[in-house]
Design a protein around this nucleic acid. Structure first.
Length: 567
DNA sequence: GCCGTTTTCGGCCCGACTGTTTTCAGTCG
């Protein structure tokens, strides 16, 4: 049982109800599904605390369904509907242009239940003869089915594609018939993963703008093309939407296309409550636009302070903007260095000198080299002897280096919570990251105690990638995070935000939770080669999305103050 | 089915594009 499973069941129910032309309920179930799939904790835990109804979009009826499923492993509403409509909606949902109604029409008329059924029906040419379908629909479905089979459309990790995105926007600015070109959407919010790229432009020649865009070498395929909206598939396998608006609407459009959806819905409701209407073209009183050229004016007219894009997730930022209590989140340029970097002395690809030179190129003031310790054999971890030789090398390099190199280690936290290097060696280190890499499938209580013992040892500065999750690969550790946070606070131990894309750990929602405990954070790229130093930006993004301020992030301090951190 | 800065009842975001339609339904974001 997982949050995702329950979320999928609710999405199925929403589709079933849509087939039955039920009004509004599909929306309610979809909202509940979204809430559940984005929970940072197991929903069972929330159920056990009796707090299901506190969740957004979950009321008495849906919470009863969740309870039934947790207790019995079945959900009667889902069971009866899925019996009535035996369709593989989960697969169909992933095919562009295949909504619940079309799926049902195909089932009713041709008995299509699965992807395979759909495939053979398409091959036999039966679909084009159906009422409501035609040759073009059939072609389109064929095409979209193919791309579904080829790549199971997945989200990309932003850390890997953001440079490509920005280069694309730069090229449009430089050579296209646009006044301005800006990236919006989840990229602007700096979400860890993105499903597509949203670009917004202004131009007095929208048609020419769209021509230019669809003719770019990165564009592999045109999905839809109009004067204001065009969607394409890019060569890196991700869709890109371009919207062109007039200058007077640019702020409203930036607001609208930055999202997220819930944030926007709430803003529109505020507009309605003031007798106004908000859409991507502006904020309107009747048919008169009273704001729209800038985002600031749109927010201001709604009685809100402008909200940083990274905060726009409808997790309290609108209320804070109304009350004027928004945090002054840490700026990217306030992050002065990187506190988690490897060299080829353990499992990195570049030498110490190369990494330091690259860090200087990135504008860092300092960098902590944190190679693995001996317990992590697979990563060629260093023992006491190798560390003392390596640290001497750092001392020497520091004499001529333009940036400060901190002596660090990513220290293995063993099964019993002890660590694998002697206190003597650790004393000479500037920055110690404690990490669990092995035997992490222990029961929750044991794993929690193991980590707490390390936190209380007085030997580590920070807990590396605290949840251990890897996006799309590995689930987070089964830990009692509240106890971990309490222990960190009590012992003045930091939590790391690891910006390596697959890790993105702590995740931003847990950063926000941990901040409440008064914990401070260290940011690291976890770079294993020079170019990966760029991932510090992603760590900064998570910090911002977690509402952290400058004082919450030790990377904003002078290196001398980092050396003086308590251990 | 959910929710409350009008409301415990009566609303629920809204516009673009496409295809198969002679005026709109379905899908998407």
């Amino acid at each position: 049982m997982s949050n995702e499973e329950i979320a999928q069941m609710f999405l199925d129910i929403a589709d079933f109800l849509e087939i039955e032309n039920v009004q509004w309920e599909p929306r309610a179930y979809r909202k509940a599904a979204l809430t559940i799939s984005s929970l940072p904790v197991d929903i069972k835990q929330i159920y056990e605390e009796g707090k299901l109804m506190d969740l957004e979009g979950i009321g008495s009826s849906i919470s009863k369904s969740i309870e039934e499923y947790i207790k019995t492993g079945r959900m009667s509403k889902y069971d009866s509907l899925s019996k009535k409509y035996p369709l593989d909606l989960r697969a169909f949902r992933k095919i562009q242009g295949m909504g619940p109604k079309r799926a049902y029409a195909l089932y009713k008329k041709l008995g299509i239940r699965s992807i395979n059924d759909l495939k053979s029906a398409l091959e036999s040419g039966k679909i084009r003869k159906l009422e409501g379908f035609g040759e073009k629909s059939e072609m389109q479905l064929k095409h979209n089915l193919e791309s579904f089979m080829k790549v199971k459309e997945e989200r990309k990790m932003l850390g890997y594609v953001i440079d490509y995105f920005e280069a694309l926007a730069r090229e449009m600015r430089k050579n296209g018939p646009f006044f301005s070109v800006e990236i919006a959407g989840s990229t602007r919010r700096m979400k860890e993963t993105v499903g597509d790229l949203d670009i917004l432009a202004t131009s007095d020649k929208p048609q020419k703008g769209m021509e230019f865009f669809t003719g770019m070498k990165q564009v592999k395929e045109i999905i839809v093309k109009g004067d204001t909206k065009t969607s394409v598939k890019l060569d890196i396998g991700i869709n890109c939407d371009l919207r062109i608006v007039e200058n007077g609407s640019f702020g409203a459009a930036m607001q609208y296309f930055t999202g997220n959806k819930d944030h926007n819905v709430k803003l529109r409701k505020i507009a309605i409550s003031k007798g106004l209407k908000l859409n991507e073209y502006g904020l309107f009183k009747g048919s008169t636009s009273i704001a729209g050229a800038t985002e600031e004016k749109v927010y201001e007219t709604l009685g809100l302070k402008w909200i940083e894009p990274e905060l726009r997730e409808n997790t309290g930022e609108i209320e804070a903007a109304r009350k004027g209590t928004l945090p002054k989140i840490v700026k990217y340029e306030e992050i002065l260095g990187d506190l988690h970097v490897h060299t080829k002395d353990s499992d990195g690809a570049n030498s110490l000198e190369e990494m330091v030179a690259a860090a200087e190129g990135f504008g860092h003031k300092f960098i902590a080299i944190t190679n693995h310790s001996k317990g992590l054999r697979i990563a060629n971890g260093l023992d006491e002897k190798r560390f003392s030789v390596f640290n001497n090398k750092i001392d020497k390099l520091n004499e001529k280096s333009n940036i400060k190199i901190l002596k660090g280690v990513e220290l293995e936290i063993l099964k019993d919570g002890s660590v694998d290097l002697s206190a003597g060696v650790l004393k000479n280190m500037d920055f110690v990251i404690g990490a669990m890499h092995q035997n992490t499938n222990m029961p929750r209580k044991e794993l929690t105690n193991r980590l707490i013992r390390a936190i209380e040892s007085g030997l580590i500065n920070t807990v590396a990638h605290p949840t251990g999750r890897k996006i799309g690969e590995r689930a987070p550790f089964d830990l009692d995070y509240e106890s971990i946070f309490e222990a960190c606070k009590k012992n003045d131990v930091l939590l790391e935000i690891d910006g390596f894309p697959e890790r993105s750990d702590l995740p931003f929602d847990m950063v926000k939770l941990a901040k409440v405990y008064g914990i401070r954070f260290s940011l690291g790229s976890d770079a294993h080669r020079d170019m990966q130093l760029r991932f510090i930006r992603m760590a900064g993004a998570i910090a911002r999305r977690g509402w952290l301020e400058k004082r919450d992030v030790v990377n904003t301090m002078d290196y001398k103050d980092i050396q003086r951190l308590k251990r």
